[in-house]
Design a protein around this nucleic acid. Structure first.
Lengths: 135, 135
DNA sequence: CCGTATCCCCGGGGATACTG
DNA sequence: CAGTATCCCCGGGGATACGG
């Protein structure tokens, strides 16, 4: 991305590509879910439900559906009794590794950056609120 | 990120780092805003309002505030009449280039992936709905 | 010019209960 | 076991108007 205003036609495409990536990864749990599946290679619904702390079955179902539509994971219904469903990363899903790694590295640098030179202020990265400390 | 379930303590940190990055970049307009400022090096409020198509002043104000809190941009009030305000990327903000580039590249691959082998189905990447074509 | 304030709508996302 | 269905709340985000 060569830093152009979004009005220039070619740059609009770059911007859209970035947004497409963000959309695919957005959602509170997507990265955690990908991570869980990736580690175990193949993973069942209830297992992921256990791996990802705090997620509800509704959310898991929804996020998995989106990941599948985006071809990041593959869903397989197994012939067991009762039915079990297996999820695994597609090749395309695995290609996310680089990005996720970059995001992790930058995130660590970011946290340091935010925490440095802020002795008098406490920044809550999550809520993005800057709160003055009680003296 | 070495693909571990989020319950393992060290991996939670990795996950959090990724989330921190996502949080900093999330918001409908952040990337577009960063892109605009980056291109012009220094850019005023009303100019960005013009560069980023469709954004409202309220949203621009809010997103700029968040970017500033996250130390990605620097805000300077100029001594003009009436007052003008200048925004520029910090060093930390510029360090996003790599990530944004990766996101762009992956986004392009992603779009191709989604569009391939889907002659009978139309995928709306934005809404994530898979719509069967009218025959 | 650079924002805030207000109103309002819609969708993300939690809790819980129910089905094949 | 693997999801749906329902209810409900809250915050993102648009439109518009106002203030320094």
């Amino acid at each position: 991305m060569n830093c152009k205003p979004s009005r220039t036609e070619e740059h609009k495409k770059d911007l859209m590509a970035v947004q497409d990536s963000m959309d695919a990864l957005q959602g509170k749990w997507k990265i955690s879910i990908i991570s869980s599946i990736c580690y175990y290679n193949k993973r069942r619904f209830s297992d992921i439900l256990n791996d990802v702390i705090g997620i509800s079955n509704k959310m898991l179902s929804k996020e998995l559906k989106e990941l599948e539509i985006n071809k990041l994971i593959k869903r397989t219904v197994l012939n067991t009794q009762p039915v079990t469903v297996q999820y695994e990363l597609t090749q395309h899903g695995k290609s996310l590794q680089t990005i996720i790694n970059n995001l992790k590295d930058w995130g660590i640098k970011h946290r340091q950056e935010i925490l440095t030179n802020n002795a008098d202020i406490f920044i809550d990265v999550k809520t993005k609120d800057a709160l003055v400390e009680n003296s």
